[in-house]
Nucleic acid binder design. Structure first.
Lengths: 328, 328
DNA sequence: TTGAAAGCGCTAACAG
DNA sequence: CTGTTAGCGCTTTCAA
């Protein structure tokens, strides 16, 4: 296998390798004549740059590491989708990982990524402490997780929760329920709960938290949801129930379970999810949701790699009404 | 920023850089004593290998490019999930891309990946011709796409389709419907249709093909499905309809639409999807599906990188019955 | 406007 | 078992 290298086209076009290198990196320094000579040689020999060798010299790579907890949440896959889209525009390459397991595994992954001299890291997992993140020798961008001295991109969760509460109140619900997977109080998404409970004030309210909803596409999640819905049905007969779920996938699981149990979803249960991800639109009854603007989050994340400023960016939360909710 | 390199720990442990290199690559050649000396130095200086420099010398990278058409199909996201899992075990890093657009864009992506000296390419997109794939200077592994002189991993689509037909016949359906997105006759998945139609023989049958189902999570797909279901309802009143969809996402879309239109899904409509992906289990009525064994496909794909043999691997198709179908 | 020389961090021959 | 030497493919001084 005879790889064409910079010296080959140097010979072919009768200039030095340095000049050829300059053709790619500082073409303005070359005469028009040399440029065309080099161009011809490149065409003729079908030369392709070797990024790897270049990175070794310059220290600047276009590789970016992305670590998700898992890929079973449409928020994650849609974010990945958008990250890829914006990365493509900037010429970045995403090395994608999931890491729902051990912290040591995640640290190992990161070490591996660093050994490829990634330009930066986009983290969605919650395993590392802010301090550990700060100590990493590359720019780190976190999305929806605890802060520290690095770039954070978070949704305006408090407002999101508040908007959910307000809509459910406008819809004349008698009982208010919040359903969440396991969380920690220092996660940004905890503010959804705070915002919701702030909006609800001292109305009849219940907060339901279940570990099993962390990955909603498991049989555990399903059986847990079955019980949750059953309980609500027996506990609040003939009441109009307003339910706010911490993400669309959980909301979707909830809606399905209601349908199975013949709960009158569009009328006696008013449902609101979070993320406004595709799953919310294509539920049996499309689910009203709080839009996190995933696309904007992705865009900001990719842009931050270029011009890194360790600060928090708050992306607005917007209520998107679907057929379950009337205009007021 | 003072990066610790191999020469630093060579000095620290009073051996040559070569010896340190050997510590990582051929430790069996070193004396126990030198090994511990080097180990200590590594600990002390907190040395991390630089994979990039290593690749430049050895020409062997652990980077692998993966190109999906898009990420809006649970077959794709689940496959990515599994690929990441097996890649992790082997120490490979996946650079992930989507490319549903132009062929020239895909070629550009691949050139970029090659410039990072990827070890191989895993392709799920259908843009390149077999010839173009064969010309690529790295091992290519395709999943569910047209063959050529490279590694192909395909499901036993014919059997899959046949199994679907047999089950629907056993369930005493009067009318048989196949719903597919746009396809080409040289795609492996076309054999699903052939297998199904072979199984159906000369019973009452209709093949429905819609471009709009390529990405089932769009409003176009939804409105198209609405019409499809409506037509079936009016065309075959009081008939038991057996429906085989080309993937679970389309099946799910179909089921939802039936529920909306008050079609008696579990009784008068017998539904079968393809992929046995999570979405099939968590539909309102879990959807019987043909399991492609995505995990096995991913495993074979990753293994093929190591020991590349350009041949086709057929992964078995297995019928997985859910509640819509009784045992026979 | 161009070229020569040095070197990014590492490893593989070859020699001892 | 260990070290010397050369070089992966490229870019960046520095000098002309």
């Amino acid at each position: 296998m005879d790889k064409v290298k910079i010296t080959d086209i140097a010979k072919q076009s009768k200039v030095s390798p340095t000049t050829v290198s300059r053709y790619f990196n500082h073409p303005e320094l070359l005469s028009q004549e040399t440029q065309t000579k080099i161009e011809d040689a490149i065409q003729k020999l079908n030369y392709k740059q070797d990024h790897l060798a270049r990175i070794l010299v310059t220290g600047e790579s276009n590789l970016v590491g992305v670590i998700f907890p898992h890929l079973h949440l449409s928020f994650y896959t849609e974010l990945l989708n958008q990250l890829i889209k914006y990365a493509k525009e900037k010429g970045y390459h995403l090395i994608v990982y999931t890491s729902n397991n051990s912290k040591s595994e995640e640290l190992q992954l990161i070490q591996n990524l660093l050994s490829y001299r990634v330009k930066g890291l986009i983290l969605l997992s919650h395993l590392l402490s802010p301090q550990e993140i700060e100590e990493l020798p590359v720019p780190v961008i976190t999305i929806e997780r605890t802060g520290g001295n690095y770039k954070q991109i978070n949704n305006d969760n408090f407002t999101g929760g508040k908007l959910a509460a307000e809509l459910l109140i406008q819809n004349d619900c008698d009982v208010f329920i919040h359903i969440n997977n396991d969380y920690q109080e220092n996660w940004p998404s905890f503010k959804r709960i705070l915002g919701f409970e702030f909006g609800i004030k001292d109305r009849c309210y219940e907060r339901i938290v279940e570990n099993n909803f962390t990955d909603p596409y498991t049989s555990k999640a399903e059986s847990t949801m079955q019980k949750v819905v059953q309980n609500l049905l027996t506990k609040y007969p003939n009441k109009k129930i307003g339910v706010f779920c911490s993400n669309d996938d959980i909301a979707n699981l909830f809606e399905r379970e209601c349908i199975k149990q013949d709960f009158d979803v569009p009328n006696m249960v008013k449902l609101i999810g979070y993320d406004n991800s595709p799953v919310s639109n294509y539920a049996v009854y499309p689910i009203t949701s709080i839009d996190q603007n995933i696309s904007l989050m992705a865009q900001v994340a990719i842009q931050s790699l270029d011009n890194y400023i360790p600060c928090e960016t708050i992306v607005p939360a917007i209520l998107v009404k679907k057929i379950q909710h009337y205009d007021t």
